[in-house]
Computed example of a mutant assay.
Amino acid sequence: MAIVLTILKRLGYAAGLLLAVIVLNFSMIHLAPGDVADTIAADAGGATEETMAAIREEYGLDQPFVVQLGRYLARVATLDLGQSYFYNRDVLDLILERLPATLLLVVSAQLVALIVGTLLGVYAARNSRGIISHLVTLFALFGYAAPVFWTGILLLIAFSLKIPIFPVAGMVDVTVEDGWFIKTLDIAHHLVLPMFTLATIFFALYSRLCRASMLEVLGSDYVRTARAKGLTPREVTLKHALKNALPPVVTLAGLQFSAVISGAVLVETVYSWPGLGQLALTSILARDTPTILGILFFSALVVIIGNLITDAVLRAIDPRLRGQA
């Protein structure tokens, strides 16, 4: 029963947070200068005041802010995100069409960064005075300091132009017409550079935090007791130290999920990855308000779900958290 109440409480918090994000996004877009009428007028080379007023009336932009917000919330409650001004399609269809590509990039980059960063951190902690530990530190500092778009451009030049190992852009090769296995390999081939680019900065965070956490745990009393009992270094690390060093890393992974989403926008632009990032950039340039709001809504939803999953993983790792609300 306590578990059910905890789940319901977490879902309530998530729903409240999502509502607050929707209202904030709508308010910020409303306060920004310009609207779709300005964009249409600019594309047409100019328009009279009467034409501008007619356009705003057609799209409901002449209504008070509270009325517009109320109508938008009512539509979102039924998953009606409106019609795209630029693409002339349902926003929900546009997002669902691009969402799988973004989720593939974001989830794979997060998993690779988390696994590799944790392994590097553990190795660096076990050999804190070795050269590998110093190399991990240098790599972490470089990964954290380098802008993700700059790293992407360098990798693109190095491994797509100078050494043509990976594709230059896109997600699939249109000439590939074989079965699903070949198509999956083709997508994976296109995914390598964008995924590694997005994961680079998070390698740094996870490896440094895991190293610091492992060094603290390895110096604790229960680890010294485990060593005194004759356990091998591998058993001490995997069965005792790592499990207690992981919670800070998992917590950071959940907190960084929003940063992964925002970083994906830049990575998708560099590699022409057909995800929400490219859709967001086009929509912003076209002042396509419904599409922008829809992308922000789904981005917030993905981040909230990611944090709920992180909370569940933390409770599975650390039994002390299971009784907390």
Score class of each variant (00 low, 15 high):
V168L: 14
V260T: 07
L242K: 03
L193N: 03
T184C: 11
T232N: 08
P233T: 04
N244Q: 13
V249C: 03
S160R: 03
R224N: 08
L191N: 06
P247G: 07
F196N: 02
V192S: 05
H240N: 10
L185D: 07
K183E: 12
I157S: 14
K183Q: 15
D221F: 08
T200G: 03
S262W: 11
T175D: 15
W150K: 00
L205Q: 14
D178V: 04
K183M: 11
K162R: 11
L218F: 00
T175Y: 15
P247A: 05
M195N: 13
W150I: 01
G254L: 07
T225N: 13
A145C: 08
V174R: 10
K229R: 13
I187N: 07
V192M: 07
L209Q: 15
A259V: 05
R227E: 14
W180P: 10
R234A: 14
L193F: 03
F159Q: 04
V168G: 07
P164S: 04
L242C: 02
F181V: 15
D221P: 09
F203C: 05
F257M: 12
R211D: 12
A145R: 03
E216T: 05
H240Q: 10
V168D: 06
G152V: 00
H190D: 03
I187P: 07
K183I: 09
T197W: 00
A226D: 12
E216V: 01
V265I: 15
V217E: 01
C210W: 02
G170P: 03
L205E: 13
T225S: 15
K229P: 04
S258T: 06
K239Y: 12
C210V: 10
F202L: 00
L238A: 08
V260Y: 13
V172S: 13
L161Q: 09
E268M: 13
F196C: 04
L209W: 08
P247N: 04
A245N: 03
W180M: 11
I201D: 02
G230W: 11
S160Q: 04
V172C: 07
V148W: 00
R208Q: 14
L185W: 08
K183S: 13
F257H: 08
G263Q: 00
T184G: 13
H189L: 11
S258I: 05
N244H: 14
W180L: 13
V174S: 10
V267F: 04
S258V: 06
Y206G: 02
